[in-house]
Simulated assay, not measured.
Amino acid sequence: MSGRGPAAAVLVLEDGRAFRGRAYGALGTAFGEAVFSTGMTGYQETLTDPSYDRQIVVATAPQIGNTGWNDEDDESSRIWVAGYVVRDPARVPSSWRARRSLDEELVRQGVVGISGIDTRALTRHLRERGAMRAGVFSGEAIGPEPDLVARVREQPHMKGANLCAEVATTEAYVVPAIGEKRFTVAAVDLGIKGMTPRRMAERGIEVHVLPATATVEDVYAVNPDGVFFSNGPGDPSTADHPVSVMQGVLERGTPLFGICFGNQILGRALGFGTFKLKYGHRGINQPVQDRTTGKVEVTAHNHGFAV
Protein backbone atom coordinates (compact mmCIF):
# COMPACT_ATOMS: atom_id res chain seq x y z
CA MET A 1 0.00 0.00 0.00
CA SER A 2 1.41 3.39 -0.97
CA GLY A 3 2.28 5.91 1.71
CA ARG A 4 1.14 8.82 -0.46
CA GLY A 5 -2.34 8.78 1.02
CA PRO A 6 -3.46 10.32 4.29
CA ALA A 7 -1.99 7.59 6.53
CA ALA A 8 -0.41 9.00 9.66
CA ALA A 9 3.02 8.01 10.96
CA VAL A 10 5.12 8.70 14.03
CA LEU A 11 8.84 8.36 14.76
CA VAL A 12 9.52 7.58 18.42
CA LEU A 13 12.97 7.79 20.03
CA GLU A 14 14.04 5.81 23.08
CA ASP A 15 14.34 8.99 25.14
CA GLY A 16 10.63 9.60 24.62
CA ARG A 17 10.70 12.31 21.97
CA ALA A 18 8.24 11.78 19.12
CA PHE A 19 7.86 13.29 15.64
CA ARG A 20 4.54 13.00 13.83
CA GLY A 21 4.22 13.01 10.06
CA ARG A 22 2.91 11.00 7.13
CA ALA A 23 3.64 7.45 6.05
CA TYR A 24 6.26 7.10 3.33
CA GLY A 25 6.87 3.74 1.68
CA ALA A 26 5.36 0.66 3.28
CA LEU A 27 2.91 0.86 6.17
CA GLY A 28 3.74 -0.90 9.42
CA THR A 29 6.50 -0.86 12.01
CA ALA A 30 10.27 -0.50 11.81
CA PHE A 31 12.87 -0.59 14.60
CA GLY A 32 16.53 0.36 14.46
CA GLU A 33 19.19 2.83 15.52
CA ALA A 34 18.29 6.38 14.42
CA VAL A 35 21.21 8.00 12.57
CA PHE A 36 21.48 10.89 10.12
CA SER A 37 23.20 11.06 6.74
CA THR A 38 24.32 14.40 5.32
CA GLY A 39 24.55 13.44 1.64
CA MET A 40 22.76 15.86 -0.68
CA THR A 41 22.33 13.09 -3.25
CA GLY A 42 22.93 9.35 -3.62
CA TYR A 43 20.01 8.11 -1.52
CA GLN A 44 19.72 4.93 -3.60
CA GLU A 45 23.31 3.98 -2.78
CA THR A 46 22.72 4.79 0.90
CA LEU A 47 19.57 2.70 1.16
CA THR A 48 21.22 -0.35 -0.45
CA ASP A 49 24.50 -0.07 1.51
CA PRO A 50 24.75 -3.11 3.84
CA SER A 51 26.52 -0.93 6.43
CA TYR A 52 23.11 0.57 7.26
CA ASP A 53 21.65 -2.76 8.41
CA ARG A 54 19.32 -2.26 11.42
CA GLN A 55 19.49 1.54 11.18
CA ILE A 56 16.72 4.08 10.64
CA VAL A 57 18.33 6.66 8.39
CA VAL A 58 17.37 10.33 8.59
CA ALA A 59 18.08 12.28 5.40
CA THR A 60 19.28 15.79 6.28
CA ALA A 61 18.77 17.03 2.72
CA PRO A 62 15.29 18.60 2.73
CA GLN A 63 13.93 17.00 -0.44
CA ILE A 64 14.46 13.34 -1.29
CA GLY A 65 13.32 11.26 -4.26
CA ASN A 66 13.91 13.74 -7.09
CA THR A 67 15.70 11.24 -9.32
CA GLY A 68 13.43 8.29 -8.53
CA TRP A 69 14.84 4.76 -8.50
CA ASN A 70 16.79 3.05 -11.27
CA ASP A 71 18.07 -0.49 -11.78
CA GLU A 72 21.78 0.35 -12.02
CA ASP A 73 22.86 2.17 -8.84
CA ASP A 74 22.07 -0.40 -6.14
CA GLU A 75 25.08 -1.24 -3.95
CA SER A 76 23.66 -4.68 -3.11
CA SER A 77 20.72 -6.94 -3.87
CA ARG A 78 18.25 -5.14 -1.56
CA ILE A 79 17.54 -2.16 0.67
CA TRP A 80 19.22 -2.70 4.04
CA VAL A 81 18.05 0.28 6.08
CA ALA A 82 15.47 -0.61 8.73
CA GLY A 83 13.50 2.58 8.10
CA TYR A 84 13.75 5.89 6.25
CA VAL A 85 12.99 9.43 7.42
CA VAL A 86 12.58 12.35 5.00
CA ARG A 87 11.20 15.86 5.21
CA ASP A 88 9.82 16.61 1.75
CA PRO A 89 9.44 13.64 -0.61
CA ALA A 90 9.49 14.56 -4.31
CA ARG A 91 6.02 14.28 -5.80
CA VAL A 92 7.26 13.29 -9.27
CA PRO A 93 10.71 11.80 -10.04
CA SER A 94 12.62 13.59 -12.78
CA SER A 95 15.40 11.54 -14.36
CA TRP A 96 15.67 9.71 -17.65
CA ARG A 97 17.23 6.80 -15.71
CA ALA A 98 14.33 6.43 -13.27
CA ARG A 99 12.20 3.29 -13.54
CA ARG A 100 9.88 4.05 -10.61
CA SER A 101 9.58 6.42 -7.69
CA LEU A 102 11.48 6.03 -4.42
CA ASP A 103 8.16 5.62 -2.62
CA GLU A 104 7.21 2.73 -4.92
CA GLU A 105 10.53 0.99 -4.32
CA LEU A 106 10.19 1.35 -0.54
CA VAL A 107 6.72 -0.20 -0.78
CA ARG A 108 8.00 -2.98 -3.06
CA GLN A 109 10.70 -3.94 -0.56
CA GLY A 110 8.54 -3.44 2.53
CA VAL A 111 10.58 -0.59 3.99
CA VAL A 112 8.63 1.54 6.46
CA GLY A 113 9.32 5.27 6.36
CA ILE A 114 7.99 8.62 7.50
CA SER A 115 7.86 12.00 5.78
CA GLY A 116 6.77 15.52 6.61
CA ILE A 117 8.68 15.85 9.89
CA ASP A 118 11.22 18.50 10.90
CA THR A 119 14.39 16.56 10.05
CA ARG A 120 16.52 19.56 11.06
CA ALA A 121 15.14 19.41 14.60
CA LEU A 122 15.57 15.63 14.65
CA THR A 123 19.18 15.89 13.46
CA ARG A 124 19.99 18.51 16.09
CA HIS A 125 18.44 16.24 18.72
CA LEU A 126 20.60 13.29 17.63
CA ARG A 127 23.71 15.50 17.54
CA GLU A 128 23.06 16.60 21.12
CA ARG A 129 21.83 13.32 22.58
CA GLY A 130 23.59 10.82 20.29
CA ALA A 131 22.36 8.07 18.00
CA MET A 132 19.67 6.04 19.75
CA ARG A 133 17.13 3.31 19.29
CA ALA A 134 13.96 4.36 17.48
CA GLY A 135 10.80 3.08 15.91
CA VAL A 136 8.66 4.19 12.98
CA PHE A 137 4.96 3.36 13.25
CA SER A 138 2.41 4.07 10.53
CA GLY A 139 -1.23 3.34 9.85
CA GLU A 140 -2.78 0.81 12.21
CA ALA A 141 0.60 0.27 13.94
CA ILE A 142 0.27 3.61 15.74
CA GLY A 143 -0.72 3.29 19.40
CA PRO A 144 -0.36 5.28 22.62
CA GLU A 145 3.06 6.94 22.75
CA PRO A 146 4.09 5.40 26.11
CA ASP A 147 3.47 1.95 24.62
CA LEU A 148 5.51 2.79 21.51
CA VAL A 149 8.41 4.11 23.62
CA ALA A 150 8.35 0.89 25.66
CA ARG A 151 8.53 -1.19 22.46
CA VAL A 152 11.51 0.86 21.24
CA ARG A 153 13.34 0.35 24.53
CA GLU A 154 12.92 -3.43 24.18
CA GLN A 155 15.07 -3.41 21.02
CA PRO A 156 18.78 -4.39 21.07
CA HIS A 157 21.48 -1.73 21.11
CA MET A 158 23.89 -1.28 18.21
CA LYS A 159 26.79 -1.51 20.66
CA GLY A 160 27.62 -5.19 20.90
CA ALA A 161 25.76 -6.09 17.68
CA ASN A 162 27.51 -8.68 15.49
CA LEU A 163 26.01 -8.06 12.05
CA CYS A 164 28.65 -8.56 9.36
CA ALA A 165 27.81 -12.24 8.78
CA GLU A 166 24.13 -11.22 8.51
CA VAL A 167 24.74 -9.11 5.40
CA ALA A 168 27.78 -10.74 3.76
CA THR A 169 27.75 -13.20 0.89
CA THR A 170 27.51 -16.87 1.84
CA GLU A 171 29.34 -18.05 -1.29
CA ALA A 172 32.60 -16.81 -2.76
CA TYR A 173 32.43 -15.18 -6.19
CA VAL A 174 34.81 -13.53 -8.63
CA VAL A 175 34.63 -10.10 -10.27
CA PRO A 176 37.01 -10.42 -13.26
CA ALA A 177 39.46 -7.71 -14.21
CA ILE A 178 38.41 -5.40 -17.01
CA GLY A 179 41.03 -5.39 -19.72
CA GLU A 180 44.51 -6.65 -18.89
CA LYS A 181 44.71 -8.38 -15.52
CA ARG A 182 47.35 -6.78 -13.29
CA PHE A 183 46.64 -8.12 -9.79
CA THR A 184 44.54 -10.53 -7.76
CA VAL A 185 42.85 -9.30 -4.59
CA ALA A 186 41.04 -11.37 -1.96
CA ALA A 187 38.20 -9.21 -0.61
CA VAL A 188 36.69 -10.30 2.71
CA ASP A 189 33.02 -9.34 2.56
CA LEU A 190 31.87 -7.80 5.85
CA GLY A 191 29.06 -5.93 4.08
CA ILE A 192 30.78 -4.93 0.84
CA LYS A 193 29.21 -2.44 -1.55
CA GLY A 194 28.84 -3.64 -5.13
CA MET A 195 30.76 -0.71 -6.57
CA THR A 196 33.94 -1.56 -4.62
CA PRO A 197 35.01 -4.69 -6.55
CA ARG A 198 33.80 -3.07 -9.77
CA ARG A 199 36.09 -0.09 -9.25
CA MET A 200 38.98 -2.47 -8.57
CA ALA A 201 38.13 -4.45 -11.71
CA GLU A 202 38.29 -1.24 -13.76
CA ARG A 203 41.91 -0.96 -12.64
CA GLY A 204 42.88 -4.43 -13.83
CA ILE A 205 42.27 -6.26 -10.55
CA GLU A 206 40.62 -9.68 -10.40
CA VAL A 207 38.62 -9.62 -7.17
CA HIS A 208 37.75 -12.79 -5.25
CA VAL A 209 34.96 -11.79 -2.85
CA LEU A 210 34.95 -14.14 0.17
CA PRO A 211 32.36 -14.62 2.93
CA ALA A 212 32.88 -13.02 6.35
CA THR A 213 33.48 -16.56 7.64
CA ALA A 214 36.47 -17.10 5.32
CA THR A 215 39.63 -18.44 6.95
CA VAL A 216 43.25 -17.47 6.36
CA GLU A 217 43.53 -20.64 4.25
CA ASP A 218 40.56 -19.50 2.13
CA VAL A 219 42.21 -16.12 1.59
CA TYR A 220 45.49 -17.61 0.40
CA ALA A 221 43.80 -20.25 -1.72
CA VAL A 222 43.23 -17.55 -4.36
CA ASN A 223 46.96 -16.60 -4.34
CA PRO A 224 46.31 -12.89 -3.71
CA ASP A 225 48.64 -10.00 -4.38
CA GLY A 226 46.69 -8.05 -1.78
CA VAL A 227 43.91 -8.56 0.75
CA PHE A 228 40.99 -6.18 1.25
CA PHE A 229 38.59 -5.97 4.21
CA SER A 230 35.31 -4.24 3.37
CA ASN A 231 32.89 -1.90 5.08
CA GLY A 232 30.06 -3.41 7.11
CA PRO A 233 27.54 -2.93 9.90
CA GLY A 234 27.62 -3.52 13.63
CA ASP A 235 30.16 -3.23 16.41
CA PRO A 236 33.76 -4.06 15.40
CA SER A 237 34.48 -5.23 18.95
CA THR A 238 32.38 -8.33 18.17
CA ALA A 239 34.24 -9.24 14.96
CA ASP A 240 36.80 -11.59 16.49
CA HIS A 241 36.98 -13.91 13.49
CA PRO A 242 37.83 -11.21 10.90
CA VAL A 243 40.40 -9.82 13.34
CA SER A 244 42.12 -13.21 13.59
CA VAL A 245 42.14 -13.53 9.79
CA MET A 246 43.68 -10.08 9.41
CA GLN A 247 46.32 -10.96 12.00
CA GLY A 248 47.18 -13.99 9.87
CA VAL A 249 47.57 -11.74 6.82
CA LEU A 250 49.75 -9.31 8.77
CA GLU A 251 51.99 -12.18 9.89
CA ARG A 252 52.56 -13.21 6.27
CA GLY A 253 53.32 -9.64 5.20
CA THR A 254 50.85 -9.53 2.30
CA PRO A 255 49.76 -5.99 1.36
CA LEU A 256 46.35 -5.29 2.85
CA PHE A 257 43.87 -2.46 2.88
CA GLY A 258 40.36 -1.80 4.09
CA ILE A 259 37.70 0.83 4.47
CA CYS A 260 35.32 1.71 7.30
CA PHE A 261 34.62 -1.52 9.23
CA GLY A 262 37.71 -3.06 7.62
CA ASN A 263 39.86 -0.21 8.90
CA GLN A 264 38.48 -0.75 12.40
CA ILE A 265 39.33 -4.46 12.08
CA LEU A 266 42.89 -3.41 11.21
CA GLY A 267 43.02 -1.30 14.37
CA ARG A 268 41.94 -4.27 16.47
CA ALA A 269 44.39 -6.60 14.70
CA LEU A 270 47.20 -4.18 15.65
CA GLY A 271 46.14 -4.25 19.30
CA PHE A 272 44.00 -1.11 19.51
CA GLY A 273 40.45 -0.93 20.83
CA THR A 274 37.33 0.49 19.23
CA PHE A 275 34.58 2.68 20.67
CA LYS A 276 31.14 3.90 19.68
CA LEU A 277 30.94 7.48 18.42
CA LYS A 278 28.22 9.74 19.78
CA TYR A 279 26.46 10.06 16.44
CA GLY A 280 29.00 8.89 13.86
CA HIS A 281 29.95 10.23 10.44
CA ARG A 282 27.59 9.45 7.57
CA GLY A 283 27.44 11.19 4.21
CA ILE A 284 29.31 11.87 0.99
CA ASN A 285 30.52 15.33 2.04
CA GLN A 286 32.77 14.68 5.05
CA PRO A 287 35.94 16.85 5.06
CA VAL A 288 39.13 15.08 6.12
CA GLN A 289 42.54 16.74 6.52
CA ASP A 290 45.78 15.02 5.62
CA ARG A 291 47.90 16.04 8.60
CA THR A 292 51.15 15.57 6.67
CA THR A 293 50.24 18.02 3.87
CA GLY A 294 47.43 20.11 5.35
CA LYS A 295 45.28 19.28 2.30
CA VAL A 296 41.55 18.82 2.97
CA GLU A 297 39.62 16.34 0.85
CA VAL A 298 35.87 15.81 0.73
CA THR A 299 35.20 12.12 1.38
CA ALA A 300 32.38 9.61 1.81
CA HIS A 301 31.90 8.15 5.29
CA ASN A 302 29.50 5.76 6.96
CA HIS A 303 30.58 4.66 10.41
CA GLY A 304 29.36 4.81 13.98
CA PHE A 305 32.50 3.37 15.60
CA ALA A 306 36.16 4.43 15.62
CA VAL A 307 39.57 3.03 16.55
Results as ranks from 00 to 15, higher is better:
Asn66Trp: 02
Asn66Met: 15
Gly68Ala: 13
Gly68Val: 10
Gly68Pro: 00
Trp69Ser: 12
Trp69Tyr: 13
Trp69Thr: 06
Asp71Thr: 03
Asp71Ile: 02
Glu72Val: 01
Glu72Gly: 00
Asp73Gln: 10
Asp74Gln: 13
Glu75Cys: 03
Glu75Tyr: 12
Glu75Arg: 12
Glu75Ile: 00
Glu75Ser: 11
Ser76Tyr: 01
Ser77Phe: 10
Arg78Ala: 08
Ile79Lys: 11
Trp80Tyr: 12
Ala82Ser: 09
Tyr84Met: 09
Tyr84Gly: 09
Val86Gly: 03
Val86Phe: 09
Arg87Leu: 04
Arg87Phe: 00
Asp88Leu: 11
Asp88Trp: 03
Asp88Ala: 14
Pro89Tyr: 15
Ala90Val: 10
Ala90Lys: 08
Ala90Pro: 10
Pro93Asp: 15
Ser94Tyr: 07
Ser94Gln: 13
Ser95Val: 04
Trp96Tyr: 09
Arg97Met: 13
Ala98Val: 05
Ala98Trp: 01
Arg99Leu: 15
Arg100Trp: 07
Ser101Thr: 07
Leu102Tyr: 06
Asp103Arg: 05
Glu105Tyr: 06
Leu106Ala: 04
Arg108Glu: 13
Gln109Glu: 10
Gln109Asn: 10
Gln109Arg: 11
Gly110Ile: 02
Val111Asp: 02
Val112Lys: 07
Val112Tyr: 07
Gly113Lys: 01
Ile114Ala: 07
Ile114Asn: 07
Ile114Thr: 01
Gly116Ala: 08
Gly116Lys: 04
Asp118Asn: 15
Asp118Met: 05
Arg120Asp: 14
Arg120His: 10
Leu122Met: 03
Thr123Glu: 05
Thr123Phe: 03
Arg124Gln: 14
Arg124Ser: 12
Arg124Thr: 07
His125Glu: 06
His125Ser: 06
His125Ala: 13
Glu128Trp: 00
Glu128Phe: 07
Arg129Trp: 00
Arg129Ala: 06
Ala131His: 10
Ala131Asn: 11
Ala131Glu: 07
Met132Phe: 01
Arg133Ala: 07
Arg133Asn: 12
Ala134Met: 09
Ala134Tyr: 04
Ala134Val: 05
Gly135Phe: 01
Val136Gly: 09
Val136Ile: 11
Glu140Val: 11
Glu140Trp: 02
Ala141Gly: 02
Ile142Gln: 06
Gly143Tyr: 02
Pro144Gln: 15
Glu145Gly: 01
Glu145Lys: 11
Glu145Asn: 00
Pro146Ser: 05
Pro146Asp: 15
Asp147Gln: 15
Asp147Tyr: 07
